[in-house]
Design a protein around this nucleic acid. Structure first.
Lengths: 219, 219
DNA sequence: ACCTGAACACCGTTCAAGT
DNA sequence: ACCTGAACACCGTTCAAGT
């Protein structure tokens, strides 16, 4: 009887804590991510978590870096526009899967290794394509502002067509129906159409931005 | 002696509550905005606030609408590109003044009158300029994604040059200095230069976007 | 070295009670 | 009609105690 314990609980590690935290935030929202609930999820007292993360801020930093690590980066050598296009779409998908991460960015100041590697990849791709330092900085800021802002707005929208219609109904009920003619028109004739999908708007803006960057690079 | 009370405390109103809440969030951050502290600020018990706002979520909705009301909208009839340019810069300034509002957008589902009026203005300006409904929706999404995302990133940056240099020092200390050559180059030769200002990056992206929209409109 | 339980200083919100 | 105080069910985190 050298190993008598029946399925001894897997040892707690920083990675297990971070993964469980990401899953809890995905499933229940970032407000439901408390040290106590995370402890329950891991079958442990909340205080045990402090052996693996310094505090809640450190936990959030680790979660963000884990999410950034999920973003697909095309192999080095890929043409810059293709690489930036694929990376942008992957980033949007990752943030859509982990909506809380979009907003958490705002308060995280200490980037982890995955974040630094990601940034190095983007800046390197642009520099290798012939962008000047200054122009690469402009391009990086523009692309990521658009991507993060898009997901921020996407998260703010009603989750489906039924909820969208319900919101439109509430608005028109609360205010005189003639108050917002252009909003009403856009809702009725476009947003409330059965085949409308906000996610599809993403490619329009991204293509316009990449077209603009390509034009600037050639001139 | 018809009015004997010496300077009777101004009656609490919803507007006074909202204004004090905005000031408290501006001064101390959104995490410091608690019902108890807001009560102290207004010289009242926390529970009194519930006579003027339904709950904390309603308070946040009201704060957002108050902030949206601060955005300057050029007079109707202004050329669309000028109007969109001025409105974008005003929106950036307003969100810079109230950084917590950028992120709060994410969780607010019920738009107030100022928000609806603002959206009506933007859609109306684009439609009057000849944008189709679908194209106006694309343009609105693109502009606001960029503006909100830009401020989100801006808020995430160190507040001044000294703090930026300190962050760069921490990163290079934590990792081998050769790990991130392009990031290091961009930091040393651009971001850490004394005259660098991230806010100045805003116009580059906005102009590129408005150029692209103008081109699409003409074609 | 890691986990626990009690404790502290907080939260949002309810409810009965005051004026 | 509006404001109050006590209470309830939560938080993050400290700390002494266990193994």
């Amino acid at each position: 009887m050298t190993e008598p314990d029946p399925a001894p609980r897997a040892r707690l590690t920083r990675d297990r804590v971070l993964q469980a935290a990401v899953e809890l935030a995905d499933a229940s929202g970032i407000d439901s991510l408390t040290m106590r609930k995370l402890g329950v999820e891991l079958g442990v007292e909340a205080m045990s978590l402090y052996n693996h993360v310094a505090n809640k801020s450190d936990l959030l930093d680790g979660m963000i870096d884990a999410v950034v690590g999920q973003i697909e980066l095309p192999p080095t050598g890929t043409a810059w526009r293709t690489a930036m296009d694929l990376r942008a779409h992957s980033l949007r998908r990752v943030l859509t899967r982990h909506p809380w991460a979009t907003v958490l960015m705002d308060s995280r100041a200490s980037p982890g290794p995955a974040t630094l590697h990601h940034h190095e990849y983007v800046v390197g791709t642009l520099r290798d394509a012939g962008f000047s330092i200054e122009f690469a900085a402009h391009a990086f800021s523009l692309m990521d502002s658009y991507i993060y802002g898009f997901v921020l707005q996407q998260n703010n929208l009603p989750p489906d067509a039924a909820a969208t219609a319900e919101l439109a109904r509430q608005i028109t009920a609360k205010f005189a129906s003639g108050d917002y003619p252009h909003l009403t028109e856009m809702a009725v004739e476009y947003v409330l159409q059965p085949d409308y999908s906000y996610a599809a708007e993403f490619a329009f803006g991204l293509d316009l931005i990449l077209d603009g960057l390509e034009r600037s690079l050639r001139s």
